[in-house]
């Protein structure tokens, strides 16, 4: 199998902070295969969220290229980038980023509205997805009326609305307790194995380790090392009991 879905070439991202320039990414080269579950790990400030933003076309690199499905993202038009975000990727964020004015159902239908799907079809799909994440009975609640774990479930359902081939999850468990976090990880893993969705997750949650196919350690804006699942088996044993 050598079907590369994401490839970055010397990606550099600099932020200007007053007169200082902060180099958040210092030349990142990674390749991610279709169907993989990848965890980008590193301490906060390591640049993993910045890399996450580059892969998801949420921000532009200062230098370097990002290729998704073989397409150079910097050569896409605004309309193509919008379509890319709408159809190809599902985003899950640490702070859920649900629209407070829309119900769980309304949040899940929104990407389908942008995709031009008919009202009947999108209502059916939203119900199906919310059922799948275990929120069938709370569909018409506003996000403020849901717990953290439930909100993240809505976000997952929303991320899947347009059948993306990639799910990007930025610290999806950081605001959740251990058990809820575990449930969310299991849910994301299920998507990966059952639906073949490529999952790219920025995290420093050790529970993410045992579900990942590969772990990319990011430090100071550079790829420190890339570990395969079998290389981390021993470490998993140490953290496995955490959620019990």
């Amino acid at each position: 199998m050598n079907d590369i879905v994401v490839k970055t070439e010397d990606v550099v991202k600099e932020y200007r902070m007053g007169s200082n320039i902060l180099r958040a990414l210092d030349g990142i080269n990674i390749e991610i295969e279709r169907g993989e579950y990848i965890s980008l790990m590193g301490p906060s400030g390591s640049g993993k969220s910045t890399l996450f933003n580059m892969i998801g076309a949420l921000d532009r690199p200062t230098e370097g290229q990002v290729y998704i499905d073989g397409q150079n993202m910097s050569q896409l038009s605004q309309r193509q980038i919008a379509a890319f975000r709408c159809h190809r990727v599902g985003y899950i964020f640490q702070s859920y980023n649900l629209l407070h004015v829309r119900s769980a159902h309304g949040n899940v239908t929104l990407p389908m509205i942008f995709a031009g799907i008919s009202e009947k079809e999108r209502n059916q799909k939203a119900e199906k997805l919310l059922d799948m994440v275990g929120l069938g009975d709370r569909m018409y609640h506003l996000p403020d009326e849901l717990s953290g774990g439930q909100r993240q479930r809505v976000a997952i359902a929303r991320a899947l609305a347009n059948d993306p081939s990639i799910v990007l999850a930025d610290e999806p468990t950081a605001n959740l307790d251990t058990i809820t976090g575990r449930e969310i990880i299991d849910l994301i893993k299920r998507l990966n194995t059952e639906q073949g969705v490529t999952v790219i997750s920025a995290t420093h949650d050790l529970k993410m380790l045992d579900v990942s196919d590969r772990i990319v350690d990011i430090r100071d804006g550079l790829v420190e090392r890339i570990r395969n699942r079998d290389e981390i088996e021993i470490e998993v044993g140490e953290v496995g009991g955490e959620g019990e």
Binding site: G70, Q71, S77, R79, R102
Partner: peptide, 23 residues
């Protein structure tokens, strides 16, 4: 390998914008 080109995003009908903004 799946190499379908990325399509262009569509414009939403005006009614849809109206509905979302009133909501």
């Amino acid at each position: 390998q799946q190499r379908t080109p990325i399509e262009e995003q569509i414009d939403l009908p005006f009614v849809e914008s109206l509905r979302i903004s009133f909501q």
